[in-house]
Design a protein around this nucleic acid. Structure first.
Lengths: 220, 220
DNA sequence: GCAGATATTATTGTTGACAATAAAGTAGTT
DNA sequence: AACTACTTTATTGTCAACAATAATATCTGC
């Protein structure tokens, strides 16, 4: 479940470091990144920094304007909804694929364990944990679905930066409703009911999108 | 319908040139690309070439191994099927979105014109033209669907390199069947029948995937 | 002749200096 | 004060030389 040989290179290090900073919220959307500064910070030349930028632009985490540098990607509400639309079909595809497969015993228990953790977080109304476990849950389903390309595409329509602030906007009844959706998906996959899994996941994601649509303007 | 200001930069030029060579089949999958050679060919330094590589790796056209350079991406049959799976849901989503929209008169006639061109190619059994028009057709639907993210994702699960050889493998009755699918999609979109458009596109793509599954081994 | 160690070579990884560009600032005119 | 033309500055784009790595060829001892 782990690739062994990833020769470290400066570009790779910078890519990972920047990605971590973006995901953690340390680098806010719209922040401009200056090659020289980062080169100094990381104590490397500008070449590797530039290449890291190109990688991150490719992954959609940065946006670049020629001769004007790069900045941490901003999402408009419209973009988020466009992405949600794609996520809906992709994640429900993943759920279907997972349900269609004959699961190994490890996969079954991993799925149950993940669901349990979310249940606990729900019961304790621990929004932070729930948010983290939610992400793990979806990743787990992608892993089980065993389709690297689909997983890759889903990764592209996930929004990283709201991660830290979204929990605070998550009301408790939304949490219950969200986990209700998860349980449906979980049991459908365990039961091998592909159609149910797909449909359940679709409406689960759709509910999330409806939530995004109502986010206050100041978040964009 | 056209963005105006794209400041040309060497990296951009190289990216475009390489992409063209890959799509045209001039650069075959598995071909190793050497920075120095390309730098000489394009008469530039190695920096821009390296950055272009990173962009193309990000777009999935090249694959890179640290310290061992990049090569034109190879697809295994399994990968192609994985991608087809994702394409299925994404393209049918695009068809649905297109059908749900109230089309402008331009969009309606563009769609009819595209369908007409494919009909002609079908009648004349011009596989080459049909293949090209087929691609344009799908792109047109994405444009009409008006969801940049979905279009972007579809671009990622399209296989460029078989473009030139696939026509030769395309039997005439497959061509007829393929265009039959297009007609269904076209009329469904024009009629605003979202469900039909989605379902028709889905089975259209699925038929294509079934075809890929049966490609001879020597193509991989 | 062959396995292993050692040198050679081709190629990528990295850097610091220079050129080109766009933005910010300044002066001069009305 | 507002407008333009020019100058300055910050930053990106580019290059050519050097360092590090992996693949290849050569040598050595058996």
């Amino acid at each position: 479940m782990q690739q062994v040989d990833i020769p470290r290179t400066q570009t790779r290090d910078i890519v990972d470091a920047l990605k971590a900073r973006i995901f953690s919220g340390e680098l806010r959307p719209g922040t401009r990144l200056i090659e020289t500064e980062l080169a100094r910070d990381f104590d490397v030349g500008r070449g590797p920094v530039r290449e890291a930028f190109r990688v991150l632009v490719g992954e959609g985490h940065l946006q670049s304007h020629a001769h004007r540098g790069v900045l941490v990607r901003r999402y408009t509400r419209e973009e988020l909804l466009e992405m949600g639309c794609a996520r809906e079909v992709l994640e429900s595809l993943a759920a279907r694929l997972a349900a269609e497969k004959t699961l190994t015993e490890e996969e079954r228990s991993a799925l149950r364990a993940s669901q349990d953790r979310m249940n606990v977080a729900e019961a304790e109304q621990d929004l932070d944990t729930y948010s983290r476990e939610n992400r793990n849950y979806h990743t787990l389903i992608e892993t089980i679905a065993d389709n690297a390309h689909v997983a890759d595409l889903i990764e592209r329509v996930r929004v990283p930066y709201l991660g830290l602030r979204l929990p605070q906007l998550f009301a408790v009844d939304q949490l219950r409703q969200s986990n209700e959706g998860h349980r449906l998906v979980t049991y459908a996959i365990l039961a091998g009911a592909a159609d149910v899994a797909e449909a359940a996941m679709r409406s689960h994601i759709r509910a999330g999108n409806a939530h995004t649509a109502q986010l206050p303007d100041e978040l964009f």
